[in-house]
Design a protein around this nucleic acid. Structure first.
Lengths: 194, 194
DNA sequence: AGGCTTGATCTATTAATATATATCGGGTGA
DNA sequence: TCACCCGATATATATTAATAGATCAAGCCT
């Protein structure tokens, strides 16, 4: 039975891991208990589409019904459009660590506009995490956020924001220079997820 | 709540109608009670993916999770690859009538291989129902099947199979001649289903 | 070593789907 | 008119997903 359910579950799991989210993170985003997420990913749970939609939505995915004939083409497109095409493992960890500090930062009682700025910088940066090769900058950003959380300094927060902006700027440069000409939709890299 | 469920439900419904299947036909194909199908199509039922998979499978559809960014492209591809791009209404009815006879034929106690042959011919024929312009042949096929059901004649069955084969052959000829050169994926015809 | 996070697992309860079965009114064709 | 098929609906029952909450071993970092 339930082969389809399993396939969807593994897709969800790999999407979650690709984004560097823990089950509890996803739980907060999707409003689904962590225990349930675990059950879904391991045991073969025949979940309802409301649950599937909640999880997929939190992962920037959408449920679609496609004709069998079109499945290979759809798979190809989906692969090439993957939000974050496999960042390096340690980079994912660093980003996750920063993300945690970010969630603490949100509760700081400082100028809202500064908070919004940091948040947006972080969101933008995440889009390019796959291009990051050196994680030293990430450590520095994490430390700045931690300092902001510990001593409540707004200066550290601004510093973190500017570091994020600079890093992202460098990454964008890397991105637009070499390989933006071909734009092929197929065969980027051999990845997982059936 | 449950917007996603509704969208999927309407997709299922239009796919079913496009194939000229009644809820009871689909019920037989998918192994889901007709009452349940009705409930799904009308009321906002939060169905489980096993049900969704069963129905989708019977309609030659597959459940996929695609990145939000890729959704428009996927929709485009799906539209162009639609299994049966709107056959003529009366043809749909004739096919439905034949389909009904087919379900009766299955219970006939005759040579299994002949039954399988008829079934396959019918499946193949359905793929090309959108090209049928004259329904006289369909009436003839229906009558042959009915005769087989009434008097249990295996000859009538064979005749029906050969008629199906011939009709499909003609249709294939029509199909490969005129418009198989472009192969574009976009803008075939303005159809329904969001 | 101690603290913290992660994923898996347990319990108990609630809520909803799924199934079997039968019926109903509306529409259609013989 | 009669018979048939359509989709919608009702009832009763079984199954199980979903939730809230807590716990646990394993791994990681300080």
């Amino acid at each position: 039975m339930n082969y389809e359910a399993e396939a969807l579950a593994t897709t969800l799991k790999s999407a979650r891991e690709r984004k560097g989210l823990s089950q509890r993170d996803l739980s907060a985003l999707a409003g689904v208990p962590q225990s349930h997420i675990s059950k879904i990913e391991t045991a073969g749970v025949d979940l309802r589409i409301s649950s599937l939609a909640a999880l997929a939505n939190a992962l920037d995915l959408e449920i679609t019904l496609v004709p069998r004939k079109a499945v290979p083409a759809v798979k190809s497109i989906s692969r090439s459009a993957a939000v974050a095409p496999t960042a390096q493992p340690d980079v994912v960890k660093h980003i996750a660590s920063i993300s945690k500090q970010m969630s603490n930062v949100k509760n700081l009682s400082v100028d809202q506009s500064v908070l919004q700025d940091v948040q947006r910088q972080f969101n933008d940066l995440q889009q390019y995490q796959n291009l990051i090769r050196d994680s030293a900058m990430l450590s520095s950003i994490r430390d700045a956020l931690k300092a902001a959380n510990d001593v409540g300094g707004i200066d550290a927060l601004r510093q973190a924001a500017s570091q994020m902006a600079r890093l992202r700027n460098d990454l964008v440069h890397l991105d637009i220079k070499p390989s933006n000409l071909p734009r092929r939709a197929y065969q980027l890299d051999g990845d997982d997820d059936a």
